[in-house]
Design a protein around this nucleic acid. Structure first.
Lengths: 353, 353
DNA sequence: CAACCACGAAAAATCGATTTACTCATTTTG
DNA sequence: CAAAATGAGTAAATCGATTTTTCGTGGTTG
């Protein structure tokens, strides 16, 4: 094979040194851009590097460093647009600073989350961006504290006494949703969510309820919260509708909830927005191409990622001071899935598609 | 702070050695599970490990190894369900074998792809799973060859003369779609795609065309292929419809194309499946909850990831022999977006939702 | 002109493991 | 009973860099 010879051992700093006729220390300095090297020697080093195709081994390079140029990222999952964009952003930001991002998925399990964190700790990276499965009080954050790790918590968190946090401003966004729905005339609204993610769900729910009640004290707000998983939520939702409850709008506090709501609407033959209105927390690309387009709260992924990395690198560089808790403003996109109640006869049947 | 003391340097193998009263070499052996150690000494080591909370530093451990226990994964993007699941699977499989997965996104750029690959090469990992932006003939695969890297190509590839490949069996799946559409009576079908991803797009198109023409020689198959980006495709599609073309079904060869098709249908007020039928390559969670549910080809992500890792580890462990090209069978889900043409008056208007 | 400084580079220590080579005992074997 | 084989463990080399210490050399300065 023509390319077999390339399989050889890669050149090390010593190979460069001997070819340039200098010591390894000098090569190291040249690579690091130190200026106290005679230009002539520097040039010889550059030539040797060029000729041998030498590149610094990041692993060996990190060995002597207290803080290795590795950033860990732990997300609850990789399958959703939100966390996909998040990882992509974080990777890009880490890379810009010469760090390598090692991402891992906790698969919505707190046990796994802690395991992964322990493994990240073994790597002795400079810092970790953790999007906890549940909230900032879980075992993972505790592990980070107990081991003096540097890190930032994002997404499903509010604030913490040890780590900087960055998340979407759920409360304000929910208040805006409330204003919109009340403004359209809705007076019976169902809110669905998962209780697990205590922190943010609470913020979203409270933000929504407070504003809705202020604007329309007579509004009826029902809440269907499942504990852990999506399927129980579906079951509860089915029960709720089976009891004959007929809200004019549904506000889903998270993406999968929006999917569950939509599929339950389908089952019952209800159509948005004529039969019922729908708004969901979390936007997705498909939501604007379906009929109707689904109204959604857009989380500012770039801002969250950006400020998380900013905070993290500040801490890595030794910044002291009490932990900060950042809330990034969301955008609410009121699409066609939201209408006014009673505009069209409630009766099912007929007008499909 | 209570947790400040934990910030200290982590115990090294020498700390364990001195506490257990043995040499570092012995500790290393015990950790590696070598049996030629006196049980009594082994126990002392275990005790010391336990007491100090010692864990092997993977980075230091990898230093002396020729093949480091790191696997690189390069995907065109992280934002879609498909690649999200893929990364998640790959991570899990790597982890099972005690490897760490380092994932990076090429963001659909071949230039970036090669850069990332070079960086992965710097890490001297044991192998790389590359999902090329375009196909197996790009600069990234060439780089891998030139540098004698171990790797597997997945997704947008057919077969290669240097690397094992694993991808979805696009041709067979497309043939099945053709059978379904022809069977439903469609005789004017539009296929849309991106020409960039030559390999797979070609397979999907040819597979579809061959079967459709065999079953119904009179069928008319139009093709709208954009070169690089999605927006030009949208424009071309718009032109196509503006010319008055009126196929009874559209087959989109990739996910974003399905979204584009849907949004163009919306623009023109056409509804599936009455006005036009739609099938897309690539499934997504939302497709089964919209009205109508969108018919889709489901790629076997787990199988692709599984066989990719299998092949990769076989090569890492020194397996010789010519590269293999695996095709994993897809599942075609014929949902409501596909109907028979002419069942319902073509006229627009009227029956919305 | 001897003592002192500054500069640039080399030598050596270090990071935290793994692995090779070697050293004692203890057993087995001729 | 001496020689060879085996067992268990350690010291030292190694991986590929970085960083500290040391060493010359040439130029200043008193």
């Amino acid at each position: 094979m023509a390319h077999r010879q390339a399989q050889q051992r890669r050149p090390s700093i010593h190979d460069v040194a001997s070819r340039a006729g200098v010591s390894a220390a000098t090569v190291s300095k040249v690579m690091a851009g130190v200026t106290t090297v005679k230009p002539e020697n520097a040039q010889r080093v550059f030539d040797a590097v060029e000729h041998l195709g030498y590149r610094v081994d990041p692993l060996a390079s990190d060995m002597r460093r207290a803080k290795r140029r590795i950033i860990g990222a732990i997300m609850p999952e990789f399958e959703s647009e939100f966390f996909g964009q998040m990882v992509s952003q974080l990777e890009s930001l880490a890379e810009q600073r010469g760090y390598t991002l090692v991402a891992a998925s906790s698969r919505e399990s707190e046990a796994r989350e802690t395991e992964i964190l322990a493994r990240m700790h073994d790597w002795r990276g400079a810092g970790v961006v953790l999007a906890p499965v549940r909230n900032e009080h879980g075992p993972a954050a505790a592990f980070m504290k107990a081991n003096g790790m540097t890190g930032v918590l994002i997404d499903r968190v509010l604030s913490d006494d040890a780590f900087d946090t960055v998340s979407a401003d759920s409360a304000s966004a929910s208040a805006e949703v409330a204003r919109a729905l009340i403004g359209k005339g809705h007076r019976h609204i169902l809110v669905i969510g998962l209780g697990e993610q205590a922190a943010t769900v609470r913020a979203r729910l409270d933000g929504f309820r407070a504003t809705a009640l202020k604007l329309a004290p007579d509004v009826r707000i029902d809440v269907v919260l499942a504990e852990t998983d999506v399927e129980p939520l579906r079951a509860q939702l089915r029960d709720y509708f089976a009891k004959g409850e007929r809200p004019t709008a549904v506000y889903s506090l998270f993406l999968k909830g929006t999917l569950v709501a939509l599929s339950e609407f389908r089952r019952r033959g209800w159509h948005c927005p004529n039969d019922i209105s729908l708004v969901g927390f979390d936007d997705a690309e498909w939501m604007q191409v379906t009929w109707p387009a689904i109204a959604a709260v857009v989380q500012p992924v770039r801002q969250i990622a950006g400020h998380a990395m900013e905070a993290l690198f500040a801490r890595i560089e030794g910044e002291e001071g009490p932990p900060t808790a950042r809330l990034e403003p969301c955008k609410v996109l009121m699409r066609e899935s939201v209408g006014s109640p009673g505009n069209v006869p409630h009766s099912g049947g007929g007008d499909r598609q």
